[in-house]
Design a binder for these strands. Structure first.
Length: 864
DNA sequence: GTAGGGTTAG
C-alpha cells in the first residue's frame, strides 16, 4: 500500500498543472482504500465513493420561501432530505464557458485570512477534561481577581489541587477565557517547580503552550517550548502539536510547517492531532489547499485515520480560497465515508457558500440541517446574516435576526457585532445605541471589533465628536486598539481631508509598536492616488513590498485608480530615494500628509503623460499576476475608468488588447464593444449574467465604468445598450419610472445614454397617442454620490446634454438636482420632425449591417 | 486540533 502511494506520487508532482479536482478525486480514491495499519480490519469508514449519488439526494428540492427566507420552517414536519450534491451542481456554472473565477466576482473576502478569535469565551470543554471542583474554584478565583493576586490564589488552593492534572486544566481553561497572558505566565512559573518528573513537566508545558497560543501569544508559547526542549521535557509529540496549533491559531502557517518538519526530523511520529493542527494552520494561513491535501495523503500513507476535525479543517481551507466545488466534494465525501457532518462542518460550508454570494443555496443548506440531526446555532445564523449584509440585502439579514430571536437562540458578541455592522452600514443610529445598550445589559462588553466598527460608521458620517468619545471610552475601558483601529482612524480622517489629524494618528500608531499591515498601506495609497500623487503611490507600493508587506488586490486597485489623475505636487521635489526602511518611509508618509494639507497641486495637462500613465497599468497588471494577486471586477472598473480619462483611443485599444492575453473573456468583451463588433453581444450578456451575484455598489461601478469608456470613445449606441442591460438587471436602484428618471447613481456616460433612451421611450408614448402627465422630470442629485461632495459633475453634464439636444427642461428653482418640464412642452418637442434624429445614438465604429433609419427609434425604445 | 463579526479598492 505504501509502495502504491510512492509510485503514484511522483506522477502527481511532475504534472504541475494537475487540477485540484483531479487531485482531490485521486485522494478520494486513495481514501477508499484501507491504509496499511487497518488493512486487516476494514471498517465502514472506507465506503467506496464512486457512486453517482447517495439515495437521499434524489429527493426533490425544497424551495426557500421568497420574500423573507426562513432558515428553518416553523412547521414540525420533517425537513426535506438533504440534496446538497444535486442542488449545488445545479446552481454552479458547469458546462458553460467561459466562467469567471470567484476572485473576479469579488466574492472572496479580502480580509486577512488569519484571524484570532480570542475575545469570545468558549463554553467549557466538558468532554475531554473533567475539571475537579477545586480547580474550577481556583480558576474562577483567578479570573475574578487582579493580576497581582494570582500567585496568592494559587498558594491558597495548592493543598487541594492535584499534580499535574489540575494545574494543566487551569492553564487550558484560562486560554479560553483570558486575553492577556500575564496570569497564565504566573500560573506556569508557580507550578513548574511542583512537577515531580519529566512526564509531569511535559504535560504542564503542553498546557502552557496551548494556553498562550489561544491568547495570541505565540512568542511566549515558543519561549516555553524552547526552554522545555533544552531542559529535556519538551521533545514530545504533545508539545510539538501544541506549538503547531499555537501557530495555526495565529495564522502562521509557515512556522507551523517548519515545526511539523522539525518534529519528524527529531524522530517523533506525528499523530492525528499533529496532522490536524498542521492542516488547520495551512487553511488559516491561506496556504494553497494542494499542500493541505498533500499532508492529508501523507497522513493516510502512515496509517492514520482522518477524523471529523481533519475533514473540517480541509473543508475550511477550500472554503477560504473560494473553491466551492472542492468544498462540496469534501462535504459529500464526509457523508460517503460515514463521518457525518457536524455543526462545524455545516457552518464552514455555509460560510463558503455565503462568501460566493449564493444566498439561496446557503438558506437551503441550513434548512437541510435538522434532518441530519444538526441544529443551526448562533454561528450559523451570524454567518447567513453576514452573507446577506455583505450583498447589501439588509432587510433579509434583519429578518433572520428576528427569526433567531424568536427561536430563543442567545446572541453572543460576534453576533452583536454583525448586527451592529448592519446598522452602521445603513446609518441607523438609534438602533446602534439600542444594540449597545442591550450588550451592556447582557453583560457583553464591547471589544476591539465593536469599537472599530463604530468608529468607522460614525467617522464615515463625519461625526468626529462621537469618534473622539469612542476613542476615549476605549482608553478608559482598556480595550486595546488594533492595527485596524489605527487604519480606520487614519482612513476616515484622510477621506474627510483632515490630514493633520490623520498624520497625528499615524504618529500615535508608530509609537504603539503595532506592526503596519496591508490595510494601513492600502489606505495610504488610496489617499495618495485620489489626490493625484501617482508617483508617490507607486513608490509606496514598492516600499511596502520591501518591508515584507504583501500588497493585495485592493492595494493594486487603488494604485490603478490613480493613473490618469496625476497632478503636479505643490513642492515639486518629486519622489524620495528608495529605502525599504520603516523609519524613513514613515517620515515620508508624514511629509505626504503635510503636503496634502497644504493643497493638492494642479492637474497634469500634458496628454502624452496621460497616455504613458495608461500603459503603466499594463506593468502593474503583470506584477499583480506574478505575485499571485488575482485581478477582480473592481480592477476591471478601475482600468476602464483610467481609459475614460485618456483621450487616445489607440492607447486604450492597445491596453485592452494586451489585457486580453490575461483574460480574453472579460477584456475581449470590452474590446469587442469598443470596436463595435456585433457578435460580441452574446458573450457580453453571459458576462453580465456571470456577475449577477455582486453587491450593488460593485455592480453599478462595473456598469458605470463600462458605459463611460464606450461613451467616451464614441460608442454611444453600445453604451446605451450596456446601460439598458444594467437597468434590466436592476443594477441601479429606482432608476426609471415612465415619466421620472433618476440618474443620481450613474456615471456621466451612463446617465447621458440613459437620457436618450428615456426620451425615446416617452416619444413612443406620445406617438401612441397617450397624454403625458403635467410634469416629467430628471433627477441628477446634487453631488451627494460624487467623490467630491457638492461638485455636481453629473448635474452639469446633464445640463449640457439637455442644452445640446435642445430638450426643453429647466432646473427646478428650489431643488438644483432636478430638471423638469411640463408634459405638454416635452410632448411638442418630441413631435417635431428633427427631434428623432437628435435622440438616436450611433457608434463611431461598427460592424453592424445598416439598420433602416425608420426602424431604429422603435428598436431603441423597445429596449427600455 | 474544527465554524461566524471589524479595515482598505468601487
Amino acid at each position: 500500500m505504501v509502495n502504491t502511494i510512492k509510485q503514484i506520487s511522483p506522477k502527481l508532482q511532475n504534472s504541475s498543472h494537475t487540477s485540484l479536482i483531479h487531485f482531490l478525486s485521486f485522494s478520494a480514491k486513495l481514501f477508499t482504500m484501507p491504509p496499511p495499519m487497518a488493512s486487516s480490519t476494514p471498517t465502514r469508514y472506507y465506503i467506496p465513493s464512486s457512486k453517482p449519488s447517495h439515495p437521499s439526494s434524489q429527493t426533490p428540492l425544497s424551495k426557500p420561501s421568497k420574500p423573507s427566507p426562513k432558515l428553518i420552517s416553523s412547521s414540525s414536519s420533517p425537513c426535506p432530505s438533504p440534496s446538497l450534491s444535486s442542488s449545488t451542481s445545479a446552481s454552479s456554472s458547469h458546462g458553460r464557458s467561459p466562467v469567471l473565477g470567484p476572485e473576479f466576482r469579488r466574492s472572496r473576502s479580502t480580509r486577512v485570512i488569519s484571524k484570532r478569535n480570542t475575545t469570545s469565551p468558549k463554553p467549557p470543554n466538558l468532554t475531554s477534561r473533567p475539571a475537579s471542583p477545586a480547580s474550577r474554584d481556583c480558576l474562577a478565583a483567578i479570573t475574578r481577581s487582579s493580576d497581582a493576586t494570582t500567585v496568592n490564589t494559587l498558594r491558597s488552593f495548592h493543598p487541594r489541587l492535584s499534580i499535574p492534572e489540575d494545574y494543566c486544566s487551569i492553564l487550558h481553561e484560562l486560554g479560553d477565557r483570558e486575553k492577556s497572558p500575564f496570569k497564565a505566565s504566573e500560573i506556569y512559573n508557580f507550578s513548574m517547580p511542583l512537577m515531580r518528573n519529566l512526564t509531569e513537566k511535559g504535560k504542564l508545558l503542553t498546557a502552557a503552550i496551548s494556553s498562550f497560543g489561544k491568547m495570541g501569544s505565540h512568542d511566549l508559547a515558543r519561549n516555553v517550548f524552547d526552554k522545555g526542549l533544552s531542559d529535556g521535557y519538551g521533545n514530545t509529540v504533545y508539545a510539538f502539536s501544541a506549538l503547531i496549533s499555537a501557530y495555526a491559531r495565529n495564522g502562521m502557517s509557515s512556522e507551523a510547517l517548519v515545526v511539523f518538519e522539525t518534529m519528524k526530523g527529531r524522530g517523533l511520529r506525528p499523530n492525528n492531532v499533529s496532522y490536524n493542527a498542521v492542516i488547520d494552520a495551512c487553511g488559516k494561513g491561506g496556504v494553497d489547499p494542494i499542500i493541505s491535501m498533500a499532508l492529508f495523503r501523507e497522513m493516510l500513507g502512515v496509517g492514520l485515520l482522518p477524523d471529523r476535525k481533519t475533514f473540517n479543517s480541509l473543508l475550511a481551507g477550500f472554503s477560504r480560497v473560494g473553491h466551492l466545488d472542492n468544498a462540496r466534494m469534501l462535504f459529500d465525501e464526509m457523508i460517503f465515508s460515514g463521518i457525518g457532518p457536524d455543526i462545524y462542518t455545516y457552518n464552514t460550508f455555509i460560510d463558503a457558500v455565503c462568501k460566493c454570494g449564493n444566498m439561496e443555496l446557503a438558506v437551503q443548506v441550513v434548512s437541510e440541517m435538522p434532518a441530519k440531526g444538526v441544529h443551526p446555532n448562533v454561528v450559523t445564523y451570524s454567518t447567513v446574516i453576514d452573507g446577506y449584509s455583505k450583498l447589501g440585502r439588509f432587510d433579509e439579514a434583519l429578518n433572520l435576526y428576528e427569526e433567531m430571536r424568536s427561536r430563543g437562540i442567545q446572541l453572543d458578541r460576534v453576533c452583536y457585532n454583525t448586527l451592529l455592522s448592519i446598522y452602521v452600514k445603513t446609518g441607523k443610529y438609534e438602533e446602534i445605541a439600542k444594540v449597545c445598550n442591550e450588550m451592556e445589559v447582557m453583560g457583553i462588553e464591547k471589544d476591539t471589533v465593536t469599537y472599530n466598527s463604530l468608529i468607522n460608521g460614525y467617522g464615515k458620517q463625519g461625526k468626529f465628536d462621537v469618534v473622539s468619545r469612542l476613542i476615549q471610552e476605549m482608553r478608559e475601558r482598556k480595550v486595546p486598539p488594533s492595527v485596524l483601529t489605527y487604519s480606520t482612524l487614519i482612513d476616515i480622517y484622510s477621506k474627510a481631508g483632515m490630514y493633520g489629524d490623520a498624520a497625528n494618528m499615524f504618529l500615535e500608531f508608530r509609537e504603539s509598536g503595532l506592526k503596519a499591515d496591508v490595510v494601513l498601506y492600502s489606505s495610504f495609497i488610496d489617499t495618495l492616488s485620489k489626490n493625484g500623487l501617482v508617483e508617490f503611490a507607486v513608490w509606496l507600493l514598492n516600499e511596502m513590498v520591501k518591508m515584507g508587506i504583501k500588497p493585495n488586490v485592493v492595494t493594486y486597485n487603488a494604485v490603478i485608480d490613480a493613473f490618469g489623475k496625476s497632478r503636479i505636487s505643490v513642492e515639486e521635489d518629486g519622489v524620495q530615494q528608495d529605502s525599504g526602511d520603516p523609519e524613513s518611509c514613515g517620515g515620508q508618509i508624514v511629509k505626504a500628509f503635510g503636503q496634502l494639507a497644504r493643497g493638492i497641486g494642479r492637474p497634469v495637462a500634458d496628454e502624452t503623460k496621460r497616455s504613458e500613465e495608461l500603459l503603466c497599468i499594463l506593468d502593474l497588471f503583470q506584477k499583480m499576476i506574478q505575485q499571485g494577486v488575482k485581478p477582480n471586477v473592481v480592477t476591471f472598473s478601475a482600468i476602464l475608468n483610467a481609459c475614460s480619462r485618456c483621450n487616445s483611443f489607440e492607447d486604450a485599444k492597445l491596453l485592452l488588447e494586451q489585457l486580453r492575453l490575461f483574460d480574453d473573456f472579460v477584456y475581449g468583451v470590452t474590446h469587442g464593444l469598443l470596436m463595435g463588433c456585433n457578435d460580441v453581444w452574446i458573450q457580453a450578456r453571459s458576462l453580465f449574467d456571470e456577475l449577477r451575484r455582486m453587491d450593488q455598489p460593485t455592480s453599478s461601478a462595473f456598469y458605470n465604468a463600462l458605459t463611460d469608456v464606450l461613451w467616451h470613445f464614441g460608442q454611444r449606441l453600445g453604451a446605451q445598450k450596456v446601460v439598458l442591460e444594467g437597468v434590466h438587471r436592476q443594477v441601479w436602484e429606482n432608476t426609471c419610472s415612465e415619466f421620472s428618471l433618476d440618474l443620481h447613481l450613474m456615471s456621466s456616460g451612463a446617465a447621458q445614454a440613459m437620457v436618450h433612451a428615456w426620451l425615446l421611450s416617452i416619444r413612443s408614448v406620445v406617438f401612441a397617442g397617450r397624454k403625458l402627465p403635467e410634469f416629467v422630470s430628471i433627477l441628477t442629485g446634487w453631488g451627494k454620490h460624487s467623490k467630491i461632495v457638492g461638485a455636481s459633475t453629473l448635474r452639469r453634464v446633464i445640463e449640457a446634454l439637455l442644452n445640446t439636444i435642445g430638450a426643453p427642461f429647466q432646473l427646478e428653482r428650489y431643488n438644483i438636482g432636478r430638471f423638469v418640464s411640463p408634459g405638454a412642452v416635452v410632448s411638442a418637442w418630441l413631435m417635431e420632425s428633427g427631434t428623432i434624429n437628435i435622440l438616436l445614438l450611433h457608434d463611431s465604429r461598427s460592424s453592424d449591417p445598416l439598420i433602416p433609419a425608420n426602424l431604429l427609434p422603435r428598436l431603441q425604445a423597445l429596449q427600455l
